[in-house]
Design a protein around this nucleic acid. Structure first.
Lengths: 112, 112
DNA sequence: TATTAATATTCCTTTTTAGGTATATTACGA
DNA sequence: TCGTAATATACCTAAAAAGGAATATTAATA
């Protein structure tokens, strides 16, 4: 599962709301639809997308499904984000002007 | 700037590539287009979206722009993700079955 | 077995968005 | 000032995705 899929799945506002909601605990489709004020078919469709992206799973109890978050995609996102941590920990800013100048020199060279 | 905007901006594969690329250091539009094999207008358009989402900024040098990442959106994402950290730190799993049972009881009560 | 509740799916329409191509803009240099 | 390089924008088309409404599915239960 690639990052684009995780990100686009989370990007849709209703789905983001669903995820925020499920953070507090597992819920059924109907409960989710009620909480975020969407219709049941839309809730099912969003949950399908979330499921296909591996972001939720469910326990089937009789004719209802109790959905809950899966941890893997969040772990993956966290791992990805870690790679960017040096951007805001000054390390990057120190290199900033140096890299700019470096690439300007490289470009000049390529032109010759 | 809301999370949906940041997420949908990052979700587009070319833009994600641009961000990964800029992680290594600032680059011009042309360099970005070359590196990820897209045409210049497409690069400009993606950079516009990234800029509007506050994810990049640029220094104008003569008639070229040197784009680089901004840290704020990444900090924001990290902060958001922190809220989910207890999902994969067992805390959630312990509550799991308890919450399921709880809501089943609540539902039964509502039916009466 | 007929009914009902919970959920999923299908079909349709609309909106959004991305790529392609051409063109506009901006600033530098001859 | 004319040409050129770097970038941005406009316009078109196509594809993806979301909501609405109706319907199908599934399982419990009377």
């Amino acid at each position: 599962m690639d990052y684009s899929t995780i990100l686009s799945t989370l990007a849709e506002p209703s789905r983001l709301q669903i995820v925020e909601l499920l953070r507090k605990g597992p819920l059924t489709v109907g409960e989710i639809a009620d909480h975020i004020h969407i219709r049941q078919p839309q809730a099912s469709k969003h949950l399908r997308v979330l499921h296909e992206a591996g972001m939720v799973e469910f326990d089937a109890e009789a004719n209802c499904r109790i959905y809950k978050l899966r941890s893997e995609p969040f772990k993956a996102l966290d791992l990805w984000l870690k790679e960017y941590r040096d951007i805001w920990e000054e390390k990057f800013d120190n290199l900033d002007r140096y890299l700019e100048d470096l690439q300007k020199r490289e470009k000049k060279e390529n032109e010759n």
